[in-house]
């Protein structure tokens, strides 16, 4: 029994220490704004995490928009309210599904890649050699990835929303024959710039911070072995997904919970 308590305490202290290291890493690198000469590092990372995630984000967005329109239509048509498909689609996408699903895809596609890359750099002692050459790996490796994540995820979310609405238009208007005017005017009547679009984008900024932070930290803190990298990559995806969903609930509660 005392042995169990000892191990429990040990684990708790380990978690605390790892949270502390993660916070120090974040503070040390996030306040480093890229100098104009180092901007190409950020551009290259935006390419890696943003541009390369574009296809998976757009494909998922299209199918999600299409399937939402289909589901809304079958339910709403029973009340003869199929014109409300546009409203339902836009509100659900802008407020919840857009930011959340884009962040989940981003964690799987880009977060895992960041972790594996930095983890391998650590395992092959590239980070240590950088330090020996007087190059700060936080500035050279970590900070550009953090900033690229902050920039890419909100942009991906906006693209996701547009493509998903287009998917809804294809299914709803072109296929199921909802009247085009009613679809769009219902949407524009209800959707508001700050309440729906602004808050949704704000959510994606929070998710961007959380996902890139977890990804970078897990890579930086990898146990330097092949197994360690695999474990760290898995952790990135699992932790990010759980954090995104938990954070989404808290954000929705504070943004829309009207009590």
């Amino acid at each position: 029994m005392p042995d169990l308590l000892l191990r429990l305490g040990h684990r708790a202290l380990n978690r605390m220490a790892s949270l502390g290291r993660a916070s120090m890493l974040w503070v040390a690198s996030v306040f480093w704004l890229p100098k104009p000469a180092d901007l190409y590092l950020v551009v290259r990372q935006i390419h890696n995490v943003g541009v390369l995630s574009l296809i998976i984000v757009m494909l998922s967005a299209f199918s999600i928009g299409a399937v939402l329109a289909l589901q809304f239509y079958t339910q709403l048509a029973r009340f003869g309210a199929q014109d409300a498909v546009g409203v339902g689609l836009a509100v659900v996408l802008l407020r919840e599904l857009g930011p959340v699903i884009t962040a989940l895809l981003f964690a799987g596609r880009a977060g895992s890649a960041i972790t594996a890359e930095i983890g391998l750099m650590k395992s092959t002692e590239q980070l240590t050699s950088m330090e020996m050459m007087g190059v700060d790996p936080l500035r050279r490796v970590v900070a550009p990835r953090l900033w690229a994540g902050f920039i890419s995820l909100p942009l991906l979310t906006a693209i996701f929303n547009v493509v998903a609405i287009y998917g809804g238009v294809v299914v709803g208007i072109e296929w199921l024959g909802i009247e085009r005017g009613a679809f769009w005017s219902g949407m524009t009547d209800v959707v508001e710039i700050w309440e729906d679009i602004g808050k949704g984008m704000l959510k994606s900024v929070f998710f961007a911070v959380v996902v890139t932070w977890i990804a970078v930290y897990q890579g930086y803190d990898t146990y330097p072995s092949a197994e360690g990298i695999g474990l760290a990559t898995t952790r990135t995806v699992v932790y990010s997904s759980v954090m995104i969903l938990a954070l989404d609930f808290l954000l929705t509660l504070s943004m829309y919970g009207d009590f």
């Binding site: 390419h47 942009l155 929303n161 005017s185």
Partner: peptide
Amino acid sequence: VEISVGAFVLAGILALVFLVVRVSG
């Protein structure tokens, strides 16, 4: 890489503009 990043950022901003103008009317 630069060209693709530029196109990506432009697409993101255009998407945002589309949401504001067309969807929120």
